[in-house]
Write a protein that binds this DNA or RNA. Structure first.
Lengths: 186, 186
DNA sequence: AGTCCATGTAAACCATCGTTTACTTACTCG
DNA sequence: CGAGTAAGTAAACGATGGTTTACATGGACT
């Protein structure tokens, strides 16, 4: 059958990756507590029990899915002169529901266990690198403001989509965003 | 007993109000899907079945709790000259976990039904008044940017508390926030 | 070829949660 | 005082969901 060709016989690594990818998709769109293990495994075409086998639990799967995405989302070494432009370009380039770690973190806000995981990763990714840039005090402030802006923007692009921040993003609004980000590093 | 004095015998209105208040507290702190009906009614000191009786369902209770808080949170008629200062003062004055509608909306993001309710209320409260101020096009943009900022700030004061936005809010950071808000209405 | 372990599956388990039902209790009004 | 109704309660129902258990199967190595 075609299925046997698509996912050849038995391959633990491939199966694990399929579950992880399906989890990233689902968590990014529907959130942590709104997606069941059965949803993920159905999308991956595998058995629900394999989540326990390969990741231990749904929590651990979430942590693995989120941290894998965050590793590819670092933006701390952009040039200062065009920081605002670059960040806005990156954040407005992402399409809805495409394995985006930011909405994934926000969609996890309602579940206390997922929130704890997100909390830890958030501080490790955003806070720590910016602290290295600006020193402990001002770095924490810069990181907080940056995270505030980026999260807010993503929130209303992905979660409660406002047209004014998606298809209807005007040049005036875009410049306001750029200026807000740029004023952080000036 | 003292209990009988605190909540005298049988009073439908008082019981309903106690449930609503407990729901606002719980939803603001732990989110929609993470707080059970039994949690709310236990905090209110009543029977879980009364949620169905007085509000119909958990969803309806959430909607009632959220809209009651939003009614008291309108900030659309602040003077333009001090808009930034006023908004920042309001947003940084709220204490954590004190029946704040903004974190309540964000914590509802993970649940699809609560998100639908929040989505509707959000657009009614923020979008519609700002549209009246600035006209349909620029009003939508202003509202989106305002909501983005306010939500982001609240997010990292309430949900993933960053010290730099709470106790450690420096004058420099505060001025950055004021400028960001003020530049919206200039 | 035959054995053995990793891989995958089916089904049940168990806890949680929103909600409903049947029942009890207190207050009110005639 | 006594019936009737509103208020409140206890317990169970039905569904969902994460996880576990027992079992089947494919592939590698001797």
């Amino acid at each position: 059958m075609a299925e046997a060709i698509l996912r050849p016989q038995r391959d633990a690594a491939r199966t694990r990756a399929a579950i992880l990818a399906a989890a990233q998709d689902a968590f990014s769109v529907r959130g942590y507590s709104d997606t069941g293990v059965r949803d993920i495994t159905a999308a991956a075409g595998v058995n629900p029990a394999l989540v326990s086998r390969y990741f231990g639990s749904k929590e651990k799967l979430f942590e693995a899915a989120l941290s894998a995405l965050l590793d590819a989302a670092l933006i701390t070494n952009l040039p200062r002169e065009t920081f605002g432009e670059d960040v806005v370009a990156i954040l407005t380039a992402t399409q809805r529901g495409q394995r985006n770690p930011l909405p994934m973190m926000m969609l996890a806000g309602a579940d206390s266990t997922a929130r704890a995981i997100t909390d830890r990763l958030l501080k490790g990714i955003f806070l720590e690198p910016m602290t290295r840039w600006y020193g402990p005090d001002r770095g924490a402030e810069k990181a907080a403001c940056f995270t505030l802006l980026a999260s807010g923007l993503t929130l209303y692009r992905e979660l409660y989509p406002l047209d004014a921040l998606n298809a209807g993003l005007s040049e005036e609004t875009r410049r306001w965003l750029v200026a807000a980000f740029q004023s952080l590093v000036d």
